[in-house]
Design a protein around this nucleic acid. Structure first.
Lengths: 158, 158
DNA sequence: GCGGGTTTGGTGACATGTCAACAAGTCGGT
DNA sequence: ACCGACTTGTTGACATGTCACCAAACCCGC
């Protein structure tokens, strides 16, 4: 058991700042999104992922993987969104177990109404406060961390 | 209603990367913390904040403000932690309404046992993957965003 | 084709977080 | 001293997320 390498002043500033930003940004973006569009962030993410897909439809497990959600969580959440008419479910033609999530017209309307305001909020509270260099640094750094955690390599091998 | 300024490729990479990192980092750190120390991240944060305070004790509302939690959330969470013997409650001598949260010996033991491993995990999955320049950039950028969201100015005025 | 092992999505029980309402205590003007 | 407005912390109802488990469907070697 080695002596732990604690964080030094700079590392601490980065780590604490990251966590504080995370929390504040979440609260504010969620607040505005709910107020302006009547959607929670999870709602928005589901609709957003669905709307970016060619047919506006995805297998439940495919959607869960993209969102990094458990199937159980997605299943519960979709049930609630289905109640509100934002998404629908279809049987999967190629797999009898499968279920396909579809964006309804109401769901499409909701995401189209919400998106401009949400992007503006992301700009206002984050993106537009950063220099181009910081944006690139953030992009590079997050990608590296994500790649490691996803078990992939940073450099394509072979 | 102007045409929305969508995010360009670089901005998108930063924003999506940030959100993906957020999610993956959370899952992994929470998983390791629970496995190694039997604590959730909220547990850890409460114990950590308390242990950094001179008397190992804080007014409930003071703690809530530091953590950016609602009082209700903290009250519920403390009740659960109290059940497990990690924290205690005392009456506040200066304010009859108030309640003071105290770190118990068991709570102190828990945070001291958990901290080295948790810091190591933060290093392994984030800090040690960044260059010194990136650490400074992250510190600067998060502080700027946090200051704005907290309603404070970036530059001290006056 | 069949049968064991896997995958898929759903379910209920439970843990956690949010919200509105509340009782008790404090504060300040009169 | 008293009254009304505010603050503090708690509570219960409810929304959301997690976990373990299950039935149905799939896959694949035989």
């Amino acid at each position: 058991m080695d002596a732990p390498r604690w964080l030094d002043a700079r590392e601490n500033r980065a780590w604490r700042g990251y966590r504080r930003m995370r929390r504040l940004l979440d609260l504010e973006l969620a607040r505005e999104l709910m107020q302006d569009a009547g959607l929670s962030e999870p709602d928005y993410d589901v609709l957003s992922d669905l709307s970016e897909t060619p047919d506006q439809r995805l297998r439940l497990s495919e959607l869960a993987d993209r969102m990094l959600w458990s199937r159980s969580r997605l299943s519960h959440h979709l049930a609630r969104m289905q109640q509100r008419g934002l998404v629908g479910r279809e049987e999967c033609p190629s797999d009898g177990r499968g279920s396909v999530v579809v964006l309804t017209p109401a769901g499409r309307a909701a995401i189209e109404a919400a998106a401009p305001g949400h992007v503006a909020a992301v700009r206002r509270h984050l993106i537009d406060l950063l220099t181009p260099e910081e944006i690139d640094a953030l992009g590079a750094l997050t990608q590296r961390v994500v790649d490691r955690l996803s078990g992939r390599r940073t450099t394509p091998e072979g």
